[in-house]
């Protein structure tokens, strides 16, 4: 691996394209397979469904790309999403008498979600970079904490947004601009901004430097703690953003919201070609990874060629294959 240097090198452009090819090939193969198995696969409705439902994991996975690139990991994002959704629903229900049902209520709810996500990310980041506990342990702990807090808030049941408020808020998931629904637009925007940040800002380069070699980064005057904390805060805020898109879909949160999202997000990042031990991150790759994961589910549902008991096994095989394809290309360089 020679990608530890911070400055992009135009001569390496061709090689980078080869790296990108693995996951893209897998994605194209899946799309062809889907189109072959079911004529509705490429219909407007199905494509919109798949993209919109990828958006939650996708937005989170973009943030996860930064955390992993900087050599960290965050296992708490799934339960954090559940917790943020729970807090957001409670806050919105409580604010109805004050704000009434309308745009201010929705904006207040969104602000609560972003702030809760930011606070949760800040807490993770603080414990990891200032207190110096391993990211795996901190986020394993906060994963349990957020999950039980959600169950506790919901009294073991489900938190539901007030019906009228929900009807007002619902278009945020189901409507959109020019036939493209909001979650897809937000996901696209986050991906583009993420790619720009990763490639063209000091923050992105510092993340890669930190993930590649912390000592060297420290001696190169990179504010290591601050960058590391920054990745977790960014991820927390993106979890908040994903929740803003998630809550209007079903208008509820419970202890079973967002289960295993963390692993899906991490898997998407790795399928996309970011190295699990850090040092090199690709946001576009992550987007490809997210799409691959959702398409597998979609195709299995549309095709029903195998017993549904085996869905998990097929997903596993495709995830591993996508990474093998990509690593194969890499070693061939």
């Amino acid at each position: 691996m020679t990608e530890t240097t911070a400055t992009p090198n135009p001569v390496r452009e061709r090689k980078v394209n080869l790296h990108v090819l693995g996951p893209v090939l897998a994605l194209v193969a899946l799309i062809l397979l889907g189109a072959f198995l079911n004529s509705n696969f490429l219909s407007y409705g199905n494509v919109t469904n798949v993209l919109a439902r990828s958006a939650f994991i996708g937005i989170i996975a973009v943030g996860m790309t930064f955390v992993i690139t900087a050599g960290g990991i965050d296992l708490s994002v799934g339960s954090m999403a559940a917790f943020v959704a729970g807090v957001m629903i409670l806050a919105m229900n409580a604010l109805i008498p004050v704000l009434g049902i309308g745009v201010p209520l929705v904006l207040a709810g969104m602000a609560v979600a972003l702030v809760t996500g930011l606070a949760a990310g800040l807490l993770n980041g603080f414990l990891i970079s200032k207190v110096g506990i391993e990211a795996f342990i901190v986020t394993l702990g906060s994963m349990g904490i957020y999950r039980s807090l959600t169950t506790w808030l919901a009294d073991g049941g489900t938190l539901s947004l007030d019906y009228a408020a929900r009807s007002f808020y619902r278009p945020v998931y189901y409507d959109g601009l020019l036939g493209i629904s909001w979650p897809i637009l937000v996901f696209a925007l986050v991906a583009i901004l993420g790619e720009l940040t990763m490639r063209h800002t000091p923050f992105g380069r510092y993340c890669a430097a930190l993930g590649a070699n912390e000592q060297v980064a420290r001696y190169s005057a990179v504010k290591v703690d601050r960058i590391r904390m920054g990745t977790y805060v960014l991820l927390g805020m993106l979890v908040g953003l994903a929740t803003i898109m998630y809550v209007p879909r079903l208008g509820s949160a419970s202890g079973s919201t967002g289960v295993l999202w963390e692993l899906e997000a991490i898997a998407a990042v790795i399928i996309g070609g970011t190295v699990l031990k850090g040092g090199s991150g690709r946001v576009w790759g992550t987007v490809t990874g997210v799409l691959i994961l959702s398409l597998i589910d979609n195709i299995l549902n549309l095709a029903s060629i195998v017993s549904p008991y085996l869905n998990g096994a097929i997903q596993g095989v495709i995830v591993i294959l996508a990474v093998v394809l990509q690593r194969g290309r890499k070693s061939a360089d």
């Binding site: 079911n38 509705n40 696969f41 219909s43 409705g45 199905n46 469904n49 439902r53 879909r249 079903l250 509820s252 419970s254 079973s256 919201t257 289960v259 589910d297 979609n298 549902n301 549309l302 029903s304 549904p308 869905n311």
Partner: peptide, 21 residues
């Protein structure tokens, strides 16, 4: 028949796909 795992989100996704299909 598909597994929605007694979960709202999973059931939503499965049903979307049934409706496309």
């Amino acid at each position: 028949m598909q597994h929605g795992n007694w979960n709202r989100d999973d059931a939503f996704n499965v049903m979307q796909d049934f409706l496309s299909k």
